[in-house]
């Protein structure tokens, strides 16, 4: 037992300890602990306003959130002072709940720029155009993305499903260590959900980890989590395996609140 936890603390990809954070002086995270290891899939569920998206944005480094206490470590390195792009360079990826529309920048050019900026940060040469094209072809096929779609302005006029598929396409291109999917299932019909989940599953490996933030259990039918956490009032109040998600789907969140009180 002792040995196992030792090993865990070394292998922790993400380790969040006693995280307290606020936005505009409103306290949102109130002492959150979370450990995610390489090769694992974690689901974070919870009612509206529990702090799920805040957690995702804080890990990604969004500036408007203020970390008041606690630490966020990635592979043993404290990342809480890093700029968003520096976190991206060491492998943090956030699939946005509401991907931003950027008129005038095509999907292809955006991902090319992102990949080459990541490579530059690692001291690598730009990716040769041939390799880039091959990779774009492969990954767009994985997400069943129409070629014409790649020349459109980023997210501009995309349907909800297209936006989410495009997020996972970018994830596939960038090959992050830690991917956080913030309500990637919202706005998806069942076919799109299956395509997106299939994409995520194909990208999963023993070297990377995925955090799935969702309201609903249905995404977890496709992306099966190793752990399910319930986030309530800025803290993780319950952790279980995949069956916890089913229970939440059937019973809602109130029983957990009652459990907490008792």
């Amino acid at each position: 037992m002792y040995l196992k936890s030792q090993a865990n603390s070394i292998n922790n990809m993400l380790k969040i300890e006693n995280l307290k954070a606020s936005v505009d002086n409103k306290s949102i995270l109130k002492g959150l602990n979370l450990e995610v290891n390489a090769g694992e899939v974690h689901a974070i569920m919870g009612p509206n306003g529990a702090g799920k998206s805040t957690l995702a944005n804080i890990i990604a480094g969004k500036e408007e959130y203020e970390v008041n206490q606690g630490t966020i470590e990635l592979n043993g390195e404290d990342i809480s002072e890093l700029a968003p792009e520096e976190r991206a360079h060491i492998g943090v990826f956030l699939s946005f709940q509401y991907p931003v529309e950027i008129p005038g920048v095509s999907v292809t050019n955006f991902i090319k720029t992102a990949i080459n900026e990541n490579r530059k940060a690692k001291g690598l040469e730009e990716m040769p155009a041939k390799n880039m094209l091959k990779m774009i072809r492969e990954k767009s096929e994985l997400l069943e993305i129409d070629r014409k779609f790649l020349s459109r302005s980023l997210n501009e006029g995309f349907s909800g499903g297209e936006k989410k598929r495009n997020e996972i396409f970018q994830m596939a291109m960038l090959e992050p260590k830690l991917a956080i999917l913030d309500e990637t299932d919202s706005g998806l019909d069942i076919d799109a959900l299956r395509i997106v989940a299939n994409g995520v599953n194909k990208l999963k490996s023993k070297d990377n980890a995925v955090i799935v933030i969702t309201h609903y259990q249905r995404l977890l039918d496709y992306i099966v989590p190793d752990f399910v956490h319930v986030l309530h009032d800025g803290k993780i109040v319950k952790t279980g395996d995949a069956s916890l998600a089913l229970e939440l789907e059937a019973r809602g969140y109130d029983w957990i609140k009652e459990e907490m009180i008792s």
Binding site: A88, V100, I111, E117, Q170
Partner: peptide, 21 residues
């Protein structure tokens, strides 16, 4: 922030937005 999250530095992100504009 969206562009930074994808690894594009703030200066480059601003430039890209201005160019697109």
């Amino acid at each position: 922030f969206y562009m930074q999250q994808r690894g594009i530095g703030i200066k480059e992100a601003r430039a890209l937005l201005m160019y697109a504009f």
